Structures are given as C-alpha cells and as structure tokens.
Amino acid sequence: MVKYAANEKFPKLYFPFVSYAKAMKADPNGGDTFRKKFTEEFAKDFKSKPESDRTMGAMYFFDPKIVKELAKQKDEFVEKLTLKKSDSISFKDAGSLLSFELAKQFTEKTLEIGQPIVKGYIPEYSQPFITGSLWASVTKPKEVNDFPDLTKDYKLLFELTDFNWKSDKETAYKNENYFLVETTRILNLHAGSGIPTDRNKPVYVLHSYAMDILMNNDNYKKKYKVDNPNLALIKQLQSKGAKFVVCGQSMTWQGWKLSDFTEDVKEAFSAKTALTSYQKQGYILHKIDAQRQ
C-alpha cells in the first residue's frame, strides 16, 4: 500500500497520481493488472473527493484538449532549454521537466481508462464570439441568476503593454500573444453571458513592447524570422468591430511608422491620452499585462 508521512501535504489537484502509484506498484509494466488496479482505486478515490476537486482533477488530467495543450507546453519548454545552449540546468527547470514527463507518462497510461470515471465532470467549452485558441474558451455555469442588461452597449477598453512573460521570452514570438488571447476570452465571456455580439464594443490600446503584436508580416519576419502568428486573430477581431490604437509617443521613440503595422491601426498622440479619452466615453478599462495576470 502506498502511504505518505503524516505531515506530508499532497497537492489536491494531483490526487489521481496516488491511484496511479498504487497501480504501478501492482503492475510496473502497465498491463491488465495495472488497468484493473487503477480503475478500482481511482473510481473509489474520485468518488470520495468534493465536487471542486473532482472537476479540477477531471479537467486537468482527463480532458483531451487540456492534455494536448500541456503536451504542447512541454515541447515549448524543452525548446526553451535547448535555446539556452547551457551545459547545465537549474533545479527549478529540472523539476519542471520531470513534472512534464510524469504527466506525459500518466496520461499515456490512464487517459482512456479514466475518462469513463470522470464522465460529466469535464466542462463543455464554447467560443460564442471569437474563435481560436483553447484559452479563449468559456464554460457554461449551471446556476446563473445575475444577468447583464442586454439592452446596453458594453464598451471594453483593453490596454496591452507586454509582448511576453519574463519566463517565456525565448519562444513567445512563435505563438499567439497570451495577452491578446486573454482579451478574446473576456469578449467570449460577455457574449456567453447573453450579451448580443454587436453590443460588444472593443478598443485596444497598445504601447511599449506589446506593439510588436501588430507588426505586418514582413516586419515581424525580419525581426523574429517567423510569420506573425497574431495576424489572423487580429483580423478576426477587426472584422467583429475591434479598433486597434497605438501610442504616438512610443512610435516616435522607437522610429515606427503606421505602415510598419497591419492594416487599419490608428495612432493616438499617446497611449495615456487615448486611455483617458475612451474612459471618458464610458469604456471600461481592462489592463492586460504580465504583472496583473
């Protein structure tokens, strides 16, 4: 029997690993005995957990979409380590790499047999306004009784200042910008709540490092050696009425011209004056940056 020290605090989210460890002890080769043992132990353990733990455990380990995304994150993490070109690895990075590998081994052996047990606990996703990344998706709550006013316009002002997380600078340029994707999740939340999509009125104000997101493909390719992965999403947003505004002060200091960006980008005197102006017009500010996520 797998036991833990009395003072050991096992992370709640990772409770399926306990069943996995017991099954591996019974059958290290991962055969029929493993499958039988895991099914028995996990079904019993899952049933004993509170609803919140069941939902989180089901989603994180047995939702194929999440599993696929985590596999992608592992590949990107390995690429980042490779790009560092170092003959050593930090303790933190080594721990992350081992966690990714353990998660991979776990899902390879348990995804199929665990899904029937967690059935009904994996949330259903939708993208009612902007489509694309999994992280733009929203779920449908079960007991909503506080509703928005569907007769009003929802003026959303997004301020973007960052291009990447500090820990993700090596590979961020190859993927859709996380902060831009987060704004699409916010838009989908509004649409999912019942607000008509034509009443969503998004304006984006970008300054500092975030302006690279808007580069036209030629300029992006010159700087990063790959096509701009954000352009399709930006075009989709513009087709849904989104307006993109860049900071004139940043433009001047960095030597930008509007022709350096994708089409239909506006230049304000400064980001700060644009933010003030739109808020005076009733727009609600959502500041999306690395410090506030």
Rank of each mutant, 00 (worst) to 15 (best):
L157F: 09
I66G: 02
E69S: 05
T33S: 09
D212F: 00
K37G: 13
F46E: 05
L70T: 07
G114Q: 09
H190A: 07
A268W: 12
L160A: 08
L237N: 03
S52Y: 01
M211K: 15
L275H: 13
H286P: 15
K174M: 11
Q279R: 11
E101W: 00
L13N: 03
A191T: 15
F10K: 13
A274F: 11
Y204I: 00
F10C: 09
K280N: 04
K92M: 14
L102T: 12
L70Q: 06
K166Q: 02
F77Y: 06
Q249T: 14
S250L: 01
F106D: 01
G132S: 06
K65A: 15
T82D: 02
L206D: 01
K12T: 04
K9S: 15
S277A: 10
K3E: 09
N230S: 01
A21F: 13
K36P: 13
L156D: 09
Y20A: 14
G132W: 08
D264Y: 11
K49F: 12
S167L: 14
E170T: 07
Y224G: 00
K49W: 09
Y4I: 14
F100G: 01
F10P: 13
F17G: 10
A242F: 15
I66E: 07
G192L: 06
D45G: 15
F244M: 05
D93Y: 05
P116G: 02
Y20T: 01
D87N: 04
F163Q: 04
W135P: 00
F261C: 09
T110I: 14
I130Q: 02
T139N: 10
A43G: 08
K12L: 15
Q105N: 08
G120M: 09
Y178F: 11
D227N: 08
T131M: 03
A268V: 08
A210I: 12
G31P: 09
Q249G: 05
Q291W: 06
K240M: 13
I117E: 04
A172P: 02
T183H: 11
L285R: 15
M251S: 09
T82A: 01
G95Q: 07
L160R: 02
I117R: 04
P202K: 13
